[in-house]
Design a protein around this nucleic acid. Structure first.
Length: 869
RNA sequence: GGGAGCAUAGCUCAGUUGGUUCAGAGCAUCUCGUUUACACCGAGAGGGUCCGCGGUUCGAGCCCGUGUGCUCCCA
């Protein structure tokens, strides 16, 4: 097979992906091999591929491909999440474009549109993952609203309700005024916002006193005030406790109360209490039995409690109320103030605390075993630092608000009779059966949906139908899954809750290892975001550089446990690596016609092969242990170095035949074999080019994708060291040539003075070739008019045709001598320190003694050389 | 306010129970080079007060305390 001048990724990638699919390599069925199960963190069905997905899925693919080549039975399950808020928002927007208002539709009509949208546009991201080479088992593609999955979610709700772990309660929740739904705490993003602090005075209903001034950042909430609260020890206000004040503009009379919750230093020390619109105020109100007055409609506009602003948005009212308060003389002061404001993760609307009747999961009951599983390392977190984060959250866990005022999702299986009694069962027939008193009554089902995460926490179980078809062969084989790869941002949303669900419904943890990726940032360390416009177009990058290069670039820049700063230059590095791989293969193929079986393998080539074999084995072992510890980026760097430096720059140069000279068949075949092993080692990271080259090297009986790793050979340390010495000698001699300005083309005569000539004779040809020496000779005395190089205990004399700069040579030797003497002094000082000799371990002392004798020998060599100059 | 983490070369990071000539790698920079695998290249080089201060130790990049700067999570 002839190789083209350059590697062209596009065609190769499409060809091999299709081939792998056609061969069914990615499909898994339970068998007698060990399972290696990974479930994809299901992207939103509305999602498109971004850098975060690219990183996350590349990592999963590396783990899965490696497991496949290790002879395991990997199963990587794809799928999507119905993403209730995000999808409903998309559908509402689509309807608006068509001139249809959601409010004009019935629930069923709306859902019909939603499914139509999902079938048409949903799951684009799954197509995009194919481009990246992800070896997902597409036959298992799942969706959190598949019929079985849907039923399972409902069953879980009913079950937890029956166990008393789900309840309905009126609580303060986070209200998204745009989506008109409740949000869980985790769906609220806190951001710093520049706002104003309004100082507003309330007229007192006290003889002889006029006003009390409060400070607030949300002046529009005054209509919901039902008290003013001060600290009981605050001398400024003590005497007012128990009396009353009037809310400005509406003149409602409210009590002044005292509570040590108040921070005297904050604002004016007097707090307006609005139980309906602030969680702290609500708690205070509960404690003091205050009235709760709601002033907002569900869309965030003011209701009739704020008579002058009815129907106006609360943010708008905040702006105009200042002027109105000012006009009435009640605005005392206005100052700039930076405060934390909650925004909806999905719609970016400012979240309003709102009192509302919602469904809740009692988390305290579920948290115990889930915490234990992680703290005991039954589930291992990588990096382990996230254990602390996890524990902290679990220790302070709050109940989970699971109802959402949306239509797209799993509808809450609760029914109400005319008197407002609640009945929970899987369906209405179930209600009638379970609660006979409901028979014949008109029941209406709760119109709300469940939080999306209430379905995704069952993902590792239900993708194998572990609940809809308990104890089936698949769930028993694939569960618990092996490794979960996900972003640290969803450790609470998803990871913690999956562990809870696993413990609750399988009695087993859902996965053994959790690998948390970093967050993808831009070069300047900023998060990728739409508004900054710093998210690159991933498919464009794949077109430009090739999928392998993109995978390489993103992995080489991903230190374990850290965020990664994305820089397109690493993609270039990946593309260059593609070229290097391609060219090395071209070189090998170039030799093919000149393969000869005559004679024996020369001892230089034999050495090179022994050395590379040792190097390869050593690196395979190293990579293995790195991957076990999830140090993927380091493993890739190591492989990159092995291929580029050790194989291409050293090994191939060592065995390269002279121009148009034959190459011995044993050497050629061994070199092909080595290269194939390198491709195999690299395959999980860069699947396409490695598969292509695997087949280009020679006719193969098997695709690389499913070729199993062979047992790693023993490492010959002596050969490894000999190779390291050889490299060191070559580099040092090249440096000497460079420093003495010997032209690369000018051949030198090399004289070696060593007590171990045989070692050099074995590799003499390599040495001559690599330092451009026309002759190599051995000497027991020094050689005049030469460049002298001392290395270890040996000396090398380079005789060049041109004159030598003895001055600079001398300078270098003197510099070296000084360094060696300083080093010797420090070693001797250490060895003469009694405490060191007494306390240090014997092997450490032995090392110090060797250092001393080595240094002495070096000094002697340098001094001899200097004497000759 | 509570919690977690980070600080090593221009940049991104390794540095595994404190002890090899330990101060490292990749990228970037500089010098030289176009000898048919590769300029998307080759050969070399330079570059760091291991954030400051104090302590433990025969010995500290590594352990302890403290200060400073930064990041993230939660409230």
């Amino acid at each position: 097979m002839e190789l083209s001048k350059n590697y062209i990724p596009g065609e190769v990638e499409a060809k091999w992906y299709q081939h792998w699919i056609d061969q069914g390599y990615f499909h898994s069925e339970p068998n007698n091999k060990p399972a290696y199960t990974v479930v994809i963190p299901p992207p939103n069905v509305t999602g498109v591929l971004h850098m975060g997905h690219c990183l996350n899925n590349t990592i999963q693919d590396i783990l899965v491909r490696r497991a496949r080549m290790q002879g395991m039975n990997p199963c990587w399950v794809p799928g999507t999440d119905h993403a209730s808020i995000a999808t409903e928002a998309k559908v509402v927007a689509m309807l608006r474009e068509r001139g249809i208002a959601k409010s004009s539709l019935s629930r069923d009509e709306f859902l019909e549109y939603a499914w139509e949208w999902k079938e048409k546009y949903g799951g684009i991201i799954l197509q995009q993952l194919r481009k990246m080479g992800c070896s997902l088992d597409w036959d298992r593609t799942s969706f959190t609203m598949d019929p079985d999955y849907y039923e399972t979610v409902i069953k879980v709700f009913v079950d937890l309700y029956n166990k008393g772990k789900i309840y309905r309660g009126k609580r303060m929740i986070n209200w998204d005024v745009r989506a008109k739904t409740a949000l869980s705490d985790e769906e609220v993003i806190h951001k710093e916002v520049n706002g104003k602090m309004y100082h507003i005075r309330y007229k007192l209903d006290v003889p002889g006193e006029e006003y009390i001034t409060i400070a607030t950042v949300r002046p529009e909430t005054i209509f919901g005030d039902t008290a003013i609260c001060v600290h009981p020890k605050d001398d400024r206000y003590k005497h007012l406790v128990g009396s009353h004040a009037f809310v400005p503009m509406i003149n409602r009379r409210i009590p002044i109360i005292a509570d040590d919750y108040i921070e005297m230093e904050f604002g004016t020390g007097a707090l307006k209490v609005t139980p309906a619109h602030d969680i702290n105020d609500f708690n205070l109100g509960q404690k003091h039995g205050l009235e709760v007055i709601e002033t907002l409609n569900e869309d965030g506009t003011m209701n009739e409690e704020a008579p002058m602003y009815v129907g106006k948005d609360r943010i708008e009212v905040r702006k105009i109320i200042a002027a109105d308060l000012e006009a009435s003389g009640n605005l005392v002061k206005l100052e700039d103030y930076v405060n934390q404001v909650g925004f909806s993760e999905r719609t970016d609307a400012v979240v309003e605390p709102r009192l509302s009747l919602q469904w809740w999961v009692d988390m305290k009951q579920l948290a115990g075993p889930a915490l234990e599983a992680v703290m005991s390392d039954e589930i291992q977190f990588h990096p382990a630092k996230f254990k602390n984060v996890y524990r902290h959250w679990m220790d302070n866990i709050k109940d989970w608000c699971i109802s959402r005022q949306l239509w797209w999702g799993h509808r809450i299986p609760a029914w109400y009779d005319a008197d407002g009694n609640v009945y929970v069962a899987e369906n209405q027939a179930g209600v009638n059966e379970k609660y006979p008193e409901t028979q014949g009554k008109t029941l209406t089902q709760d119109s709300d949906c469940l939080d999306t995460w209430f379905s995704s926490w069952l993902w590792p179980i239900e993708v194998f139908k572990g609940m809809s078809n308990p104890n089936n062969a698949e769930i028993n084989y694939y569960y618990p899954t092996s490794t979960l790869v996900t972003a640290p941002e969803i450790i609470f949303f998803w990871v913690a809750r999956m562990i809870m669900a696993g413990e609750e419904y399988m009695g087993k943890i859902p996965f053994k290892d959790v690998y948390f990726t970093g967050i993808v940032r831009d070069k300047q360390g900023r998060k990728m975001s739409k508004s900054l416009g710093n998210s690159p177009d991933l498919l464009g990058l794949i077109d430009q550089y090739g999928a392998d290069a993109v995978r390489f670039g993103i992995m080489i820049a991903s230190p374990a446990g850290n965020d990664l700063l994305f820089d397109e230059s690493t993609l270039e590095q990946g593309r260059n690596f593609n070229s290097k791989l391609w060219n090395a293969a071209k070189l090998l193929k170039m030799w093919e016609p000149r393969v000869s079986k005559e004679g024996k393998v020369e001892q230089d080539a034999a050495f090179a092969m022994d050395w590379f074999q040792a190097k390869l084995s050593a690196t395979q072992i190293e990579v293995d242990s790195m991957l076990k510890e999830f140090r993927l980026s380091e493993a890739l760097k190591t492989i990159y170095g092995l291929i580029w430096d050790d194989y291409c720059s050293w090994y191939l140069e060592w065995i390269k035949p002279g121009f148009e000279q034959p190459i011995h068949a044993d050497v050629y075949n061994k070199s092909i074999e080595f290269y194939d092993s390198l491709l195999q080692l690299l395959h999980p990271f860069m699947p396409f080019i490695t598969e292509e080259l695997h087949h280009a090297l020679k006719p193969q009986t098997q695709d690389l994708c499913i070729k199993e790793y062979e047992a790693i050979g023993k490492v010959d340390e002596a050969v490894l060291n000999a190779g390291a010495l050889l490299k060191n000698v070559i580099s040092t001699l090249r440096d000497a040539r460079n420093k003495n300005q010997v032209k690369p083309k000018d051949a030198i005569q090399l004289h070696i003075q060593s007590k171990n000539n045989i070692a050099y004779q074995t590799i003499q040809n390599i040495l001559a070739k690599q330092v451009n020496a026309k002759s190599v000779a051995y000497t027991s005395t020094s050689i005049g008019s030469s460049i002298v190089v001392a290395l270890e205990k040996d000396k090398f004399y380079l005789v060049a045709d041109q004159a030598i700069d003895t001055a600079s040579l001398k300078e270098n030797l003197l510099k070296d001598l000084e360094h060696q003497r300083g080093f010797l002094a420090s070693v001797e000082k250490k060895l003469s320190n009694e405490k060191f000799v007494q306390n240090a371990k014997p092997e450490i002392i032995a090392i110090e003694q060797k250092k001393k004798s080595d240094a002495l020998a070096r000094i002697e060599t340098i001094e001899e050389s200097l004497a000759q100059l």
